[in-house]
Design a protein around this nucleic acid. Structure first.
Lengths: 124, 124
DNA sequence: TGCTAGCTTGACCTTAACGTAAACGATAAT
DNA sequence: ATTATCGTTTACGTTAAGGTCAAGCTAGCA
């Protein structure tokens, strides 16, 4: 699974240590990863890719996993989920701002480059 | 500035240690942060907020700061900038996917909640 | 059955990004 | 002028997220 997902075995075992994964074991004690484990790992990796801590990933996994029959539990989970959503939306805004800025810098550099080239041509 | 930006003084000094900031000093050796410093700090914090390392932030700051007169330098910077842009775009996609997923979970939870409430009403 | 490749656990090591404490100097308020 | 309140430097501590290495299992294959 490690190769498949482009991540070290140590990392996977580390995630398990932290309770983010819990694969079945074979007779001889070897780990068996099912489809669900793969899904969870993907979610973890995606979370990490934009700066969530493992703990936050665990929270999200916890949210996705729970199937409580108590309305109060659902409400609690919902309000927590909304916090995360708000956070995501902020990040989205930030990311877009950053993107715009970089595009601006890029444009300026192209302009400067064109200016330099023009100067060189004139010097011929 | 720390309070203003919601970050510890230690962090700010740490960023300076790493070369990301370089404020002027007063007569008695105290740091004086100008507008440019604030701008840089904002960029650092935004970078951190979605998982860039300080080193990557430094790279971006370096890009923004440079004013080279060599076309080759500009080109180099441009290609690096484009890498970052591509990365940003990937992150944006990820973020949107995550957002959608969370929304989906939210919807399901609302539905389950409504179902529970309906059941309770019927029981009366 | 024996070999080889891969898995498991445990222990210790590393790096980034700070936190915290101590000892001293600078500034502001009274 | 003298406190009280900051700021400065130095040094050591801490936490998250793994890397690395050793010693012993296991599984598939000849």
């Amino acid at each position: 699974m490690a190769q498949e997902m482009g991540v070290s075995t140590r990392s996977i075992r580390f995630y398990e240590e932290k309770g983010l994964l819990s694969p079945q074991r074979s007779n001889g004690g070897q780990r068996l990863y099912c489809k669900r484990d793969r899904t969870r790992l993907k979610l973890i990796l995606r979370g990490k890719r934009f700066g969530l801590s493992l703990e936050q990933c665990a929270d999200i996994l916890g949210l996705a996993a729970l199937e409580p029959d108590e309305a109060s539990q659902i409400k609690k989970a919902l309000s927590y989920g909304q916090e995360i959503l708000v956070d995501l939306e902020h990040r989205l805004q930030d990311l877009k701002a950053m993107h715009r800025e970089m595009k601006g810098v890029e444009k300026k550099m192209y302009a400067r480059l064109a200016q330099l080239e023009a100067g060189r041509d004139q010097a011929r």
